[in-house]
Amino acid sequence: MALERSDVEKIAHLARLQIREDEVPGYTQTLSDILALVDQLQATDTTDVEPMAHPLDAVQRLRADVVSETNQREQLQSVAPAVENGLFLVPRVIE
């Protein structure tokens, strides 16, 4: 399956990646190559194979419902570009 230029632009937008105009052909090619590899894998007969959710052959360990975290707001916000009244400030997201 070959990707179009517009597919690459859409994927970049969904991932919030800014790519330069002259990089688009390269990405279109390499991503198409990856999909070609997937096509090759698709040819394998997997009728009786259970889909794998995780490469480790183990199950999730559970945690008891006990509060273990304390308020670290000051420290955690010390690396934030903008804070006010305890809130993180980000560029406005609605009009």
């Binding site: 903008a82 006010e84 305890g86 809130l87 993180f88 400030l89 980000v90 406005r92």
Partner: peptide, 12 residues
């Protein structure tokens, strides 16, 4: 929180 924080959005 979309109240006006100098044109920014507050996140809790």
């Amino acid at each position: 929180l979309h109240e006006d924080f100098h044109g920014m959005t507050g996140i809790d």
